[in-house]
Amino acid sequence: MMNKDNTFIPSGDILRQFLANQMISANELKGILQARGAFCSSQDKKNLVPLLVKTGIAPYEFAHLKDLVKEKEDNPKVQTKQLTWNQDLGTTLASELGFGFDFENLVDDTFHNLTIENEPQFIVAGDGKNPNHVIAEVRIKRRDRTKNFGEDENYFDCSIEMRVDENNQLDLNVTTKHTSKESQNIANEIVRRASRKLKESSAIKSEEIKRILFTDFTNESRIDYLTQLIKSIDYAAYIKNTKRIHIKPDNDIPGDAPEEIKMLEQKIKELTLKGENLDSSVFLRLSTLKARIKLFNISCTYTITTSEVEGACEIDFEFPDLESMSQSELTISIVRFSTKSKISNKERSKLKMTVLKAFEAKKLDLLKEHSFKYTPSSSLETVSES
Protein backbone atom coordinates (compact mmCIF):
# COMPACT_ATOMS: atom_id res chain seq x y z
CA MET A 1 0.00 0.00 0.00
CA MET A 2 1.31 3.45 -0.87
CA ASN A 3 1.97 5.90 1.93
CA LYS A 4 -0.92 8.35 2.13
CA ASP A 5 1.53 11.21 2.74
CA ASN A 6 3.10 10.50 -0.63
CA THR A 7 -0.19 10.31 -2.54
CA PHE A 8 -1.89 13.36 -1.00
CA ILE A 9 -1.88 16.47 -3.24
CA PRO A 10 -3.02 19.71 -1.57
CA SER A 11 -5.63 21.96 -3.13
CA GLY A 12 -7.58 25.09 -2.29
CA ASP A 13 -6.70 26.89 0.92
CA ILE A 14 -4.29 24.15 2.03
CA LEU A 15 -2.34 24.61 -1.21
CA ARG A 16 -2.31 28.37 -0.68
CA GLN A 17 -0.83 27.91 2.81
CA PHE A 18 1.81 25.59 1.44
CA LEU A 19 2.85 27.89 -1.46
CA ALA A 20 3.13 30.83 0.96
CA ASN A 21 6.03 29.09 2.75
CA GLN A 22 9.05 31.40 2.77
CA MET A 23 11.32 28.62 1.50
CA ILE A 24 9.39 28.63 -1.81
CA SER A 25 10.50 31.64 -3.88
CA ALA A 26 8.59 33.53 -6.54
CA ASN A 27 11.12 32.32 -9.11
CA GLU A 28 10.29 28.70 -8.28
CA LEU A 29 6.59 29.36 -8.84
CA LYS A 30 7.31 31.17 -12.13
CA GLY A 31 9.43 28.23 -13.21
CA ILE A 32 6.53 25.82 -12.70
CA LEU A 33 4.19 28.04 -14.72
CA GLN A 34 6.74 28.48 -17.52
CA ALA A 35 7.27 24.72 -17.72
CA ARG A 36 3.54 24.49 -18.47
CA GLY A 37 3.80 27.17 -21.16
CA ALA A 38 2.18 29.84 -19.00
CA PHE A 39 4.00 33.13 -18.50
CA CYS A 40 3.42 35.84 -15.87
CA SER A 41 5.27 39.15 -15.72
CA SER A 42 4.83 39.55 -11.96
CA GLN A 43 7.61 38.76 -9.49
CA ASP A 44 5.20 38.91 -6.55
CA LYS A 45 4.03 35.70 -4.90
CA LYS A 46 0.71 37.43 -4.14
CA ASN A 47 -0.01 37.26 -7.86
CA LEU A 48 1.66 33.92 -8.61
CA VAL A 49 0.12 31.85 -5.81
CA PRO A 50 -3.54 32.38 -6.92
CA LEU A 51 -2.65 31.13 -10.42
CA LEU A 52 -1.36 27.83 -9.05
CA VAL A 53 -4.21 27.52 -6.55
CA LYS A 54 -6.74 27.84 -9.40
CA THR A 55 -4.96 25.38 -11.71
CA GLY A 56 -3.65 22.98 -9.05
CA ILE A 57 -0.24 21.29 -9.03
CA ALA A 58 0.94 17.94 -10.36
CA PRO A 59 2.43 15.26 -8.09
CA TYR A 60 5.97 15.82 -9.43
CA GLU A 61 5.62 19.61 -8.89
CA PHE A 62 4.44 19.04 -5.33
CA ALA A 63 7.34 16.66 -4.65
CA HIS A 64 9.82 19.29 -5.92
CA LEU A 65 8.33 22.04 -3.74
CA LYS A 66 8.29 19.79 -0.65
CA ASP A 67 12.02 19.20 -1.11
CA LEU A 68 12.62 22.96 -1.20
CA VAL A 69 10.80 23.41 2.10
CA LYS A 70 12.84 20.64 3.74
CA GLU A 71 16.23 21.84 2.52
CA LYS A 72 16.77 24.68 4.96
CA GLU A 73 20.38 25.76 5.27
CA ASP A 74 22.13 24.15 8.24
CA ASN A 75 23.69 26.49 10.79
CA PRO A 76 25.75 24.14 12.95
CA LYS A 77 26.12 24.29 16.69
CA VAL A 78 29.12 22.50 18.21
CA GLN A 79 29.82 21.19 21.69
CA THR A 80 33.15 19.47 22.36
CA LYS A 81 33.54 16.92 25.15
CA GLN A 82 36.55 14.78 26.08
CA LEU A 83 37.30 11.32 27.44
CA THR A 84 40.66 9.65 28.12
CA TRP A 85 41.53 6.87 25.63
CA ASN A 86 43.22 3.66 26.81
CA GLN A 87 46.00 3.17 24.23
CA ASP A 88 47.26 0.01 25.98
CA LEU A 89 44.18 -1.98 24.92
CA GLY A 90 45.20 -1.91 21.26
CA THR A 91 41.65 -1.47 19.94
CA THR A 92 40.10 1.19 17.68
CA LEU A 93 36.95 3.30 17.74
CA ALA A 94 35.74 1.65 14.53
CA SER A 95 35.94 -1.83 16.02
CA GLU A 96 34.40 -0.74 19.33
CA LEU A 97 31.46 1.25 17.95
CA GLY A 98 31.09 0.19 14.32
CA PHE A 99 29.33 -3.10 15.04
CA GLY A 100 26.22 -3.73 17.11
CA PHE A 101 25.93 -0.27 18.62
CA ASP A 102 22.45 0.33 20.06
CA PHE A 103 20.66 3.15 18.23
CA GLU A 104 17.20 1.86 19.17
CA ASN A 105 14.65 3.91 21.14
CA LEU A 106 16.58 7.17 21.06
CA VAL A 107 13.32 9.13 20.97
CA ASP A 108 11.04 9.28 24.01
CA ASP A 109 7.83 10.64 22.47
CA THR A 110 4.48 9.15 23.41
CA PHE A 111 2.61 10.98 20.64
CA HIS A 112 5.05 10.02 17.86
CA ASN A 113 5.54 13.61 16.72
CA LEU A 114 9.28 12.99 16.63
CA THR A 115 10.84 10.26 14.48
CA ILE A 116 14.30 9.29 13.22
CA GLU A 117 14.30 9.24 9.43
CA ASN A 118 17.54 7.34 8.72
CA GLU A 119 19.32 4.29 10.08
CA PRO A 120 22.30 5.77 11.96
CA GLN A 121 25.55 3.90 12.45
CA PHE A 122 29.16 4.70 13.32
CA ILE A 123 31.39 4.71 10.24
CA VAL A 124 35.01 5.75 9.67
CA ALA A 125 35.04 9.50 9.00
CA GLY A 126 37.00 11.62 6.56
CA ASP A 127 38.94 9.68 3.94
CA GLY A 128 38.15 6.40 5.69
CA LYS A 129 41.79 5.63 6.55
CA ASN A 130 41.79 6.34 10.28
CA PRO A 131 39.86 3.71 12.31
CA ASN A 132 40.18 5.97 15.36
CA HIS A 133 38.05 8.68 13.73
CA VAL A 134 34.36 7.78 13.46
CA ILE A 135 31.08 9.61 12.92
CA ALA A 136 27.38 8.82 13.23
CA GLU A 137 24.72 11.04 11.64
CA VAL A 138 21.07 11.22 12.63
CA ARG A 139 18.20 12.87 10.74
CA ILE A 140 15.14 13.76 12.81
CA LYS A 141 11.63 14.72 11.70
CA ARG A 142 9.33 16.68 13.97
CA ARG A 143 5.65 17.05 13.09
CA ASP A 144 3.67 19.95 14.54
CA ARG A 145 0.00 19.46 13.73
CA THR A 146 -0.91 22.95 14.96
CA LYS A 147 0.87 24.61 12.02
CA ASN A 148 -0.20 25.23 8.46
CA PHE A 149 0.30 22.54 5.87
CA GLY A 150 3.85 22.70 4.50
CA GLU A 151 5.11 24.13 7.78
CA ASP A 152 4.02 21.21 9.96
CA GLU A 153 7.16 19.13 9.33
CA ASN A 154 10.65 20.18 10.36
CA TYR A 155 13.87 18.27 9.82
CA PHE A 156 16.91 18.44 12.09
CA ASP A 157 20.33 16.85 11.79
CA CYS A 158 22.86 15.96 14.41
CA SER A 159 26.15 14.11 14.24
CA ILE A 160 28.44 12.58 16.82
CA GLU A 161 32.09 12.60 15.79
CA MET A 162 34.81 10.90 17.83
CA ARG A 163 38.53 11.03 17.24
CA VAL A 164 41.54 9.95 19.29
CA ASP A 165 44.17 12.71 19.18
CA GLU A 166 47.93 12.49 19.52
CA ASN A 167 47.64 12.93 23.30
CA ASN A 168 45.37 9.89 23.61
CA GLN A 169 42.42 12.14 24.35
CA LEU A 170 39.11 11.02 22.85
CA ASP A 171 37.48 14.20 21.52
CA LEU A 172 33.71 13.96 21.29
CA ASN A 173 32.62 16.66 18.87
CA VAL A 174 28.84 16.75 19.23
CA THR A 175 27.39 18.77 16.37
CA THR A 176 23.73 19.78 16.24
CA LYS A 177 22.52 21.52 13.11
CA HIS A 178 19.76 24.11 13.47
CA THR A 179 19.10 25.02 17.09
CA SER A 180 16.97 22.01 17.87
CA LYS A 181 16.61 20.89 21.45
CA GLU A 182 15.44 17.51 20.13
CA SER A 183 18.62 16.90 18.14
CA GLN A 184 20.77 17.94 21.10
CA ASN A 185 18.97 15.53 23.42
CA ILE A 186 19.38 12.65 20.95
CA ALA A 187 23.06 13.46 20.42
CA ASN A 188 23.65 13.53 24.18
CA GLU A 189 21.91 10.16 24.56
CA ILE A 190 24.17 8.63 21.89
CA VAL A 191 27.22 10.08 23.67
CA ARG A 192 26.07 8.53 26.96
CA ARG A 193 25.62 5.12 25.31
CA ALA A 194 28.96 5.35 23.50
CA SER A 195 30.87 6.31 26.66
CA ARG A 196 29.20 3.46 28.55
CA LYS A 197 30.08 0.94 25.83
CA LEU A 198 33.69 2.14 25.63
CA LYS A 199 34.01 1.98 29.41
CA GLU A 200 32.63 -1.58 29.54
CA SER A 201 35.30 -2.73 27.07
CA SER A 202 38.03 -0.72 28.88
CA ALA A 203 38.67 1.38 25.75
CA ILE A 204 38.44 4.50 27.90
CA LYS A 205 39.78 4.96 31.40
CA SER A 206 36.65 6.53 32.86
CA GLU A 207 33.17 7.63 31.92
CA GLU A 208 33.77 11.19 33.04
CA ILE A 209 33.18 13.65 30.21
CA LYS A 210 34.85 17.05 30.22
CA ARG A 211 32.35 19.84 29.67
CA ILE A 212 32.46 23.61 30.13
CA LEU A 213 29.62 24.74 32.41
CA PHE A 214 28.42 28.15 33.54
CA THR A 215 29.34 27.32 37.14
CA ASP A 216 32.97 26.51 36.25
CA PHE A 217 33.79 30.23 36.55
CA THR A 218 33.47 33.18 38.86
CA ASN A 219 31.55 36.11 37.39
CA GLU A 220 34.79 37.94 36.61
CA SER A 221 36.65 34.96 35.16
CA ARG A 222 33.63 34.03 32.98
CA ILE A 223 33.69 37.51 31.44
CA ASP A 224 37.47 37.34 30.92
CA TYR A 225 37.14 33.86 29.39
CA LEU A 226 34.43 34.80 26.90
CA THR A 227 36.02 38.10 25.87
CA GLN A 228 39.28 36.24 25.16
CA LEU A 229 37.47 33.44 23.33
CA ILE A 230 35.72 35.73 20.81
CA LYS A 231 38.96 37.27 19.52
CA SER A 232 40.17 36.58 15.97
CA ILE A 233 41.66 33.26 14.94
CA ASP A 234 44.12 33.93 12.12
CA TYR A 235 43.34 30.96 9.88
CA ALA A 236 39.57 30.91 10.53
CA ALA A 237 37.81 34.19 11.34
CA TYR A 238 38.61 37.85 12.03
CA ILE A 239 36.42 39.71 14.50
CA LYS A 240 34.58 42.73 13.15
CA ASN A 241 32.14 43.72 15.87
CA THR A 242 30.68 42.60 19.21
CA LYS A 243 27.05 43.44 18.58
CA ARG A 244 25.07 41.89 21.46
CA ILE A 245 25.60 40.77 25.06
CA HIS A 246 23.16 39.25 27.55
CA ILE A 247 23.89 40.06 31.19
CA LYS A 248 22.24 39.83 34.61
CA PRO A 249 23.21 41.52 37.87
CA ASP A 250 24.32 39.14 40.62
CA ASN A 251 22.46 40.30 43.72
CA ASP A 252 24.15 37.68 45.92
CA ILE A 253 27.52 39.43 45.97
CA PRO A 254 28.09 40.99 49.44
CA GLY A 255 29.08 44.61 50.00
CA ASP A 256 27.94 47.92 48.52
CA ALA A 257 27.43 47.94 44.76
CA PRO A 258 29.21 50.57 42.65
CA GLU A 259 27.02 53.44 41.45
CA GLU A 260 27.22 52.24 37.85
CA ILE A 261 25.42 49.03 38.69
CA LYS A 262 22.95 50.04 41.42
CA MET A 263 20.13 50.69 38.95
CA LEU A 264 20.59 47.22 37.43
CA GLU A 265 20.51 45.49 40.80
CA GLN A 266 17.40 47.37 41.93
CA LYS A 267 15.21 47.37 38.80
CA ILE A 268 16.51 44.99 36.13
CA LYS A 269 16.49 41.19 36.36
CA GLU A 270 18.38 40.68 33.09
CA LEU A 271 19.39 42.82 30.15
CA THR A 272 20.29 42.33 26.49
CA LEU A 273 22.46 45.11 25.10
CA LYS A 274 22.79 45.75 21.37
CA GLY A 275 25.35 48.07 19.84
CA GLU A 276 28.95 48.29 18.67
CA ASN A 277 32.07 46.76 20.24
CA LEU A 278 30.23 45.76 23.40
CA ASP A 279 33.16 43.67 24.64
CA SER A 280 34.68 47.01 25.73
CA SER A 281 31.49 47.97 27.58
CA VAL A 282 31.96 49.28 31.11
CA PHE A 283 30.17 46.16 32.42
CA LEU A 284 32.76 43.85 30.86
CA ARG A 285 35.78 46.07 31.42
CA LEU A 286 35.83 47.33 35.01
CA SER A 287 36.80 44.69 37.59
CA THR A 288 34.54 46.27 40.23
CA LEU A 289 31.55 45.69 37.94
CA LYS A 290 32.61 42.35 36.45
CA ALA A 291 32.43 40.69 39.85
CA ARG A 292 28.72 41.58 40.01
CA ILE A 293 27.71 40.69 36.43
CA LYS A 294 26.63 37.30 35.12
CA LEU A 295 27.41 37.09 31.41
CA PHE A 296 25.35 34.54 29.49
CA ASN A 297 25.91 35.39 25.84
CA ILE A 298 28.17 37.30 23.48
CA SER A 299 27.26 37.62 19.79
CA CYS A 300 29.94 38.75 17.32
CA THR A 301 30.33 39.32 13.61
CA TYR A 302 33.42 38.09 11.76
CA THR A 303 34.97 38.30 8.34
CA ILE A 304 36.23 35.10 6.73
CA THR A 305 39.11 35.16 4.28
CA THR A 306 40.67 32.08 2.69
CA SER A 307 42.68 31.59 -0.49
CA GLU A 308 39.41 30.85 -2.33
CA VAL A 309 36.55 32.53 -0.44
CA GLU A 310 35.66 35.80 1.25
CA GLY A 311 32.65 35.98 3.50
CA ALA A 312 31.11 36.98 6.80
CA CYS A 313 29.38 35.28 9.70
CA GLU A 314 27.75 35.95 13.05
CA ILE A 315 28.59 33.61 15.93
CA ASP A 316 26.89 33.17 19.30
CA PHE A 317 28.96 32.17 22.35
CA GLU A 318 26.32 31.19 24.87
CA PHE A 319 25.40 29.41 28.08
CA PRO A 320 21.83 28.75 26.90
CA ASP A 321 19.98 27.10 29.77
CA LEU A 322 19.03 30.01 32.01
CA GLU A 323 16.67 27.86 34.07
CA SER A 324 19.42 25.47 35.18
CA MET A 325 22.75 27.27 35.10
CA SER A 326 24.56 24.47 36.94
CA GLN A 327 24.01 22.30 33.83
CA SER A 328 24.21 25.06 31.21
CA GLU A 329 27.03 24.09 28.85
CA LEU A 330 28.91 26.56 26.68
CA THR A 331 27.70 26.33 23.10
CA ILE A 332 29.20 28.00 20.04
CA SER A 333 26.85 28.37 17.07
CA ILE A 334 26.78 30.12 13.71
CA VAL A 335 23.72 32.35 13.42
CA ARG A 336 24.33 33.90 10.00
CA PHE A 337 26.77 33.02 7.23
CA SER A 338 27.38 34.46 3.76
CA THR A 339 30.06 34.46 1.06
CA LYS A 340 30.78 37.02 -1.66
CA SER A 341 31.00 34.35 -4.34
CA LYS A 342 28.66 31.42 -4.84
CA ILE A 343 29.95 28.12 -3.45
CA SER A 344 28.40 24.67 -3.12
CA ASN A 345 26.50 23.58 -0.02
CA LYS A 346 29.26 21.08 0.69
CA GLU A 347 31.90 23.82 0.62
CA ARG A 348 29.74 26.07 2.82
CA SER A 349 29.28 23.32 5.40
CA LYS A 350 33.01 22.57 5.40
CA LEU A 351 33.89 26.23 5.88
CA LYS A 352 31.40 26.63 8.73
CA MET A 353 32.82 23.62 10.53
CA THR A 354 36.39 24.90 10.07
CA VAL A 355 35.39 28.13 11.83
CA LEU A 356 33.47 26.38 14.61
CA LYS A 357 36.13 23.78 15.33
CA ALA A 358 38.80 26.49 15.52
CA PHE A 359 36.84 28.19 18.30
CA GLU A 360 36.18 24.82 19.94
CA ALA A 361 39.92 24.14 20.18
CA LYS A 362 40.51 27.64 21.56
CA LYS A 363 37.70 27.09 24.06
CA LEU A 364 39.56 24.20 25.67
CA ASP A 365 42.96 25.93 25.55
CA LEU A 366 41.68 28.95 27.50
CA LEU A 367 40.22 26.91 30.35
CA LYS A 368 43.43 26.63 32.35
CA GLU A 369 43.70 30.42 32.51
CA HIS A 370 40.16 31.20 33.61
CA SER A 371 38.24 28.26 35.12
CA PHE A 372 38.74 27.63 38.83
CA LYS A 373 37.54 24.05 38.22
CA TYR A 374 40.17 23.29 35.59
CA THR A 375 42.15 20.13 36.42
CA PRO A 376 44.47 18.85 33.65
CA SER A 377 44.38 15.25 34.83
CA SER A 378 40.64 14.86 35.28
CA SER A 379 37.34 15.88 33.77
CA LEU A 380 35.35 18.93 34.74
CA GLU A 381 31.96 17.32 34.95
CA THR A 382 30.45 13.86 34.96
CA VAL A 383 27.57 13.17 32.60
CA SER A 384 24.94 11.01 34.24
CA GLU A 385 24.19 7.60 32.76
CA SER A 386 20.48 8.00 33.44
Results as ranks from 00 to 15, higher is better:
215 T>E: 15
220 E>D: 12
222 R>L: 06
222 R>W: 00
222 R>T: 02
223 I>P: 04
229 L>M: 10
233 I>D: 02
234 D>F: 12
236 A>I: 04
239 I>F: 01
241 N>S: 07
244 R>S: 12
244 R>C: 03
245 I>F: 09
247 I>K: 06
251 N>L: 06
251 N>P: 05
251 N>V: 13
252 D>V: 11
252 D>H: 14
255 G>Q: 07
259 E>H: 05
260 E>C: 11
262 K>Y: 07
262 K>R: 14
262 K>P: 00
265 E>K: 14
265 E>C: 12
266 Q>M: 14
267 K>N: 11
268 I>Q: 08
268 I>G: 12
269 K>R: 14
269 K>H: 10
273 L>G: 02
275 G>V: 11
279 D>K: 10
279 D>W: 11
281 S>K: 00
282 V>S: 02
285 R>T: 15
286 L>V: 01
286 L>H: 06
287 S>H: 02
288 T>V: 13
289 L>V: 05
290 K>E: 06
291 A>S: 05
291 A>D: 06
292 R>I: 05
293 I>W: 03
293 I>P: 08
294 K>C: 11
295 L>N: 04
298 I>H: 02
302 Y>Q: 10
302 Y>G: 03
304 I>G: 01
307 S>V: 01
309 V>G: 04
313 C>A: 14
313 C>D: 03
315 I>H: 03
320 P>N: 08
321 D>W: 00
321 D>C: 03
321 D>H: 04
322 L>T: 12
323 E>C: 05
324 S>R: 09
326 S>V: 15
326 S>E: 14
327 Q>H: 04
327 Q>K: 13
330 L>Y: 07
333 S>T: 11
335 V>T: 10
336 R>N: 09
339 T>H: 11
340 K>T: 15
346 K>S: 15
347 E>A: 11
